[in-house]
């Protein structure tokens, strides 16, 4: 999945989003390259999650363009964008609480199935074959994320850190072409944070999946990211490598407050 010769996987051009006059995103542009770990940071309310919601089709911006794998996705429904290979996790865990870990991961593969209601009722032929193949694929993810101990547990009974991991697994089960991670280490202790960082790096390096990461953990972002986009009040403050961004006076002002 790595080499399109550097053609961006995702291109965001001048996107503007407002809710009843309150501007959430104000003319933001960026692109994500193949196998890149791209981070979006900014103070609370800067519009980070809004950007994610635009990308996954939950919000529809008033202006701008978003191209994913070369196709305009702004007019598409969320499930269509998901089927194109855009997976995401949520800031507050959004799992299917009554279902087991296994079923949650299997749901990640929902759009990979090619059988209809009648085949499902009979559980014959295609339905059975595809379910078994999906199960094998999901077991690989269970291995990768070390979820085997919780396979049959309803996710609502699991500790928070594990739920976060199940959500990451559900996104991976989609076999995404681009992965959006919304605060993957929020509320985690140091050890869990380091585990997650390792998973994120593995996903990029071994699977070659480009990642857009939103987080408040500066240490994590600066360590992992190839490039960083800094937002404040819905506007782009800076874009560049972690080192460049850290030196940028506008970034320092946004985070530490102006000297006014």
């Amino acid at each position: 999945m790595t080499g399109d010769g550097g053609t961006p996987v995702l291109e965001v051009e001048d996107v503007g989003l407002a809710f009843a006059g309150v501007t959430a995103i104000d003319g933001v542009s960026f692109d994500v390259r193949p196998a890149e770990l791209f981070a979006v940071i900014g103070p609370n309310g800067a519009g980070k999650t809004s950007v994610f919601n635009v990308l996954s089709g939950v919000y529809r911006p008033q202006r701008g363009r978003v191209r994913f794998l070369g196709e305009d996705i702004l007019s598409r429904r969320p499930h269509e964008i998901a089927a194109m290979g855009l997976a995401r996790t949520f800031q507050n865990v959004e799992l299917f609480h009554n279902l087991t870990v296994l079923d949650n991961l299997m749901l990640g593969r929902h759009h990979h199935f090619r059988y209809g209601a009648l085949a499902a009722l009979a559980w014959l032929g295609r339905a059975r074959r595809q379910e078994l193949a999906a199960r094998a694929a999901v077991e690989d993810i269970i291995d990768f994320l070390e979820l085997a101990a919780w396979r049959r547990h309803p996710v609502r009974l699991l500790p928070y850190g594990v739920q976060k991991r199940v959500e990451l697994g559900r996104a991976l089960a989609m076999e995404p072409r681009l992965l959006l991670l919304d605060e993957p280490v929020a509320g985690m202790n140091l050890e869990e944070t380091e585990d997650t960082a390792r998973y994120v790096l593995d996903i990029r390096d071994e699977l070659g999946i480009p990642i857009v990461l939103v987080d408040h953990d500066m240490g994590l972002v600066m360590d992992l990211a190839d490039r960083v986009l800094v937002l404040d009040f819905g506007r782009r403050v800076a874009l560049g490598t972690p080192a460049e961004v850290q030196r940028d006076p506008k970034v320092i002002e946004a985070y530490l407050g102006g000297s006014s």
């Binding site: 939950v58 429904r77 969320p78 949520f90 799992l95 609480h97 009554n98 279902l99 990640g108 929902h110």
Partner: peptide
């Protein structure tokens, strides 16, 4: 079941 438990997330993962 996904729609029952959390409909927005269901749509975002492709249901």
């Amino acid at each position: 079941a996904a729609i029952r438990d959390r409909d927005i997330a269901a749509e975002v993962i492709g249901v």
